[in-house]
């Protein structure tokens, strides 16, 4: 009868994974040899200890998963499907009701803006009028505004005089 050697490390690992998958001779040896069996069991015990310790780390008081409650309001959905015209009318009414105040407010805002702009223009115009009242026309224009209203100012009537707004006549080089 062929005598088989002890299982090596790799074969022990293979046996720990799947003993049935081992070669027939190796399997028979493993069942008879206490040393090989002990090695395999030691490895399996180490793995079992690892699994046991790991599982001891898992919390037990966790929040259990729940299925969401069945949707209520399925009846409403059916109403929409059965009466599409009615639902469209209802939707449009809601839309109109919702939009009306927005449109009205929009007009109000627009009117306010126009009035405000006009008031500003009026104020500007009135300010100009007041300005003209406060600052009368320059003397020259007053002088020429009407004959005989008062004596002409000879000094100011001279071209180029202090109060004269008329441009001074150009003096050419030829005249000089």
């Amino acid at each position: 009868m062929k005598k088989i050697r002890h299982l090596d490390d790799n074969q022990i690992v293979e046996a720990a994974i799947d003993e049935i998958g081992l070669d027939g001779l190796l399997r028979r040896h493993l069942s008879e040899c206490t040393a090989c069996r002990a090695q395999k069991e030691e490895l399996q015990a180490g793995l079992a200890r690892f699994a046991e310790f790991s599982r001891g780390e898992i919390p037990l008081d966790f929040r259990k998963p729940k299925l969401a409650a069945e949707k209520s309001g399925g009846g409403m959905v059916n109403v929409w499907r059965i009466h599409p015209v009615l639902s469209l009318c209802a939707a449009l009414s809601v839309l109109v009701l919702f939009l009306t105040p927005i449109v009205i407010n929009r007009d109000k805002i627009f009117t306010k803006r126009v009035v405000y702009r006009e008031m500003l223009q009026d104020e500007k115009f009135m300010a100009e009028v007041r300005n003209l009242e406060d600052d009368p026309l320059p003397g020259f224009y007053v002088d020429i505004s009407g004959p005989g209203s008062h004596k002409p100012n000879v000094e100011s009537a001279k071209p180029g005089a202090k109060n004269d707004v008329r441009p001074a006549p150009k003096v050419g080089l030829r005249n000089a």
Partner: peptide, 12 residues
């Protein structure tokens, strides 16, 4: 099996 074999060897 192959992956498990390699992993157990590393564990060992």
């Amino acid at each position: 099996k192959t992956h498990l074999y390699r992993a157990i060897r590393k564990f060992k």
